[in-house]
Design a protein around this nucleic acid. Sequence first.
DNA 1: CTTGGCACTCGGGAACACAGAGTGCCAGAC
DNA 2: GTCTGGCACTCTGTGTTCCCGAGTGCCAAG
Lengths: 337, 337
Amino acid sequence: MVDDRKLAVLRAIVEDYVSTNEPVGSKALADRHSLGVSPATIRNDMAVLEEQGYIAQPHTSAGRVPTDKGYRLFVDRLSQVKPLSSAERKAIESFLAGAVDIDDVVMRTVRLLAQLTRQVAVVQYPTLTNSTVRHVELVPLSERRLMFVLITNTGRVEQRVVELPDVVDEQRVAHLRAMLNTSLDGCGLTSVPDKVADLPERLPAEDRPLAATILSVLLESLVDRHDEKIVFAGAANLAGADFTVGLRDVLEALEEQVVLMRLLGETSDLSALTVRIGSENPYTGLQGTSIVAAGYGSGDKQLARLGVLGPTRMDYPVTMGAVRAVARYVSQILAAS
Amino acid sequence: MVDDRKLAVLRAIVEDYVSTNEPVGSKALADRHSLGVSPATIRNDMAVLEEQGYIAQPHTSAGRVPTDKGYRLFVDRLSQVKPLSSAERKAIESFLAGAVDIDDVVMRTVRLLAQLTRQVAVVQYPTLTNSTVRHVELVPLSERRLMFVLITNTGRVEQRVVELPDVVDEQRVAHLRAMLNTSLDGCGLTSVPDKVADLPERLPAEDRPLAATILSVLLESLVDRHDEKIVFAGAANLAGADFTVGLRDVLEALEEQVVLMRLLGETSDLSALTVRIGSENPYTGLQGTSIVAAGYGSGDKQLARLGVLGPTRMDYPVTMGAVRAVARYVSQILAAS
DNA sequence: CTTGGCACTCGGGAACACAGAGTGCCAGAC
DNA sequence: GTCTGGCACTCTGTGTTCCCGAGTGCCAAG
């Protein structure tokens, strides 16, 4: 039913519409693309494509515009991810290489991606779930307060100030620290609760209140960040684009961690590019926008996701290329550090 | 020259224009405010005010609109900072009290301020310059890598991964850590360079390369963040307002740390509210916007600044009240932790 | 100094016409 | 059967004109 020429027509429509932002008509198609047939034939094809729901006309006697379904077909079958130029690759590499810590990596990444795609970039912080404990530190601040610091293998640092039940001396803190580190070193964050469950029992009775307090903070800091932190950049790029839905809704969604979270979605496959087009995405405020996302991680473990958000009318091949490339470079950087 | 009634007229114009967003005419003024004079008299006053540059008309035969100079006079002499309702105060307090660490404090603050003022809120992270060293930690990660962590009295944590020149054992690291802590504990960040200058000399020769490497990272981490981090929230609130200048420029400015920095400005006086109106602010992309900012800090030291950015046509008394209140509460929170 | 009256000026909205782009359909050509 | 050229039709967007109303500035009188 959808023969090759119709697909070619659809592709041409998507490409033209993306570049001109105007409904594209049969004549323009025949002119700009060498399809080898006359406008009348194209019109017939377009009528079929419209009936099948791939394109639509904003009103009678206007050109056609791809529907979400049309973009979907385009992305799935009619386009190839466009690799970046070597100049771009080089720029990415050197820009990311300068990062000093995990915050810096994330910040640079999100800015880079925004600039590269000229859209809104979204980057999720590396999740704690898949990482392991590198070190636990207890730093006495005063007689009854200490700071608890958890360092993971991804370079992330969780810190909490703990109010202590009793005055404790340096030595007992040191002892507890040592115990914590021997029990937890290298252990996955998900298994931390198991590992420390019996820890109070292994301590002399007088140390138990202290241990319990600290453990509760430790456990809390693990679940606390289950809703992972997400940052975005490039909101200015929204100003040019005109959305069917209000700009306000988009900006609101961007500031809602939870929404962003769901937008980036989850896939087990690390290298897979996820594309959510218009109505496919779960949040009603974001009809009219598409999300291109990919996972990143160090080694073979997926740590988190990153992506860009833009109007459904976006250049998918280029955007996908950029997202994929950035995800790979970030993975490299993280694996190396 | 500017007698009381003219000032009253100006005040009325500002208030009406802020609430209606439409140029206000002499008739409307006479109706809505009980100025005790006729529209004709008001017209005369307005003519004078216009000549003096406090108000302007968008076009002949439209009402008047305050100029930047008009707003300035309003803010300086015609308005009083409006205190928050006790319900609002309570909400602020409980919302901020739940913060677990410095990141959380900043994030909550910026969101709170955005919601409270329905504008874009901007918060600068507490500067390192005025804070003191609480603890230095060296965490071996592998044979040739360790993580350097610096904890300040404001609860801020600076971390760096350090590549070591040689394989080092735990003991030497512990020794160095002890030395660093005894030299630096409680010392102001600005005096850190002095304090550690002679440290290598006090070590056995074989430890010096290690010490030098770590010290260079330490010093670097201090200057690195001299351009302080700034976050914002509430960009969605821009969508409603219509700027004379493009929305794009505003969003761009918001993502430029340096620009934001200069916008918040500097004042030595902690409690002072700074108001920058329209063209008074240094960045050309932000004509048409005003900034209301205040310093905050723990105790009597100013740590950083926070504020909101909105259209020049904003409700200054309310905005100033909110900014001042939030600044105070944040200061309290920081002082307590 | 204030006030009412009056002529004048614009901006914005409504009504209207029109050109242009694009479509659907049909009959004929290959 | 598929493609093509022709043709009538349908819209939208734009430009024009017109008019109403809000608001002003000025003036002469209270």
